[in-house]
Design a binder for these strands. Sequence first.
DNA 1: TTCTCTTATCGTAAAATTACGATAGGATGC
DNA 2: GCATCCTATCGTAATTTTACGATAAGAGAA
Lengths: 108, 108
Amino acid sequence: MPTTAISMDEELAILAKALGHPARVRIIQFLAKRSSCMCGDIVDELPLAQSTVSQHLKVLKDAGLICGDVDGPRVCYCIEPSALKRLKTLITALPSPISSPHKVCRSA
Amino acid sequence: MPTTAISMDEELAILAKALGHPARVRIIQFLAKRSSCMCGDIVDELPLAQSTVSQHLKVLKDAGLICGDVDGPRVCYCIEPSALKRLKTLITALPSPISSPHKVCRSA
DNA sequence: TTCTCTTATCGTAAAATTACGATAGGATGC
DNA sequence: GCATCCTATCGTAATTTTACGATAAGAGAA
């Protein structure tokens, strides 16, 4: 049911992009540390408005990195372990460059 | 000499953001596969204008993931192995969530 | 020098991101 | 019912990203 069967490039790009903001990295770390689901405690943890945090949560959710369950009046977020694992796999799979074919670059 | 001594959150966010575009993922893969430095062959590899590719290369360079050496009339890009390694380390270091404290989320 | 090749930068426009306050909507408690 | 709490969404504005063509700048060849 994927829209067009996305490539590995796109998949990695989507996951990496979702992590491409300090606030979202901290959210992931917070959720992982708390291990469990959490809700708006994340808002207290970040120097951001509630609506902004909600937006970041949506980005992470759209990327599949987290999921949210309604738990009474509040929402319980937790990491999607398979997605995080997938990200680790894709990053690790990036081939390490074979050392210096002629000369390694030095300056920019 | 870091601007303010960036945190690990920011460091990971910067690296992840740089990878957060399919074109840039493909550039990294291409450079790693070629192992060695490369120049505007990257332009031929991507369905993008030369100026756009140059912009993507700049993003990767600013993030420290690649470097470019002038080699006569052309520029020789290559992966900065330490930065790629650092990214792998930071991603891998993301704590895996401790399994289900009460109940794992199911739907979004 | 002049011409050519390669790459970076400029200028621009469209789209996406980031952030906020304000508001709506759903669930619980009174 | 009504009030309250929590979260998502709306509306908005400033900034950034993405993309392109056009142009400049550097190096080598004729």
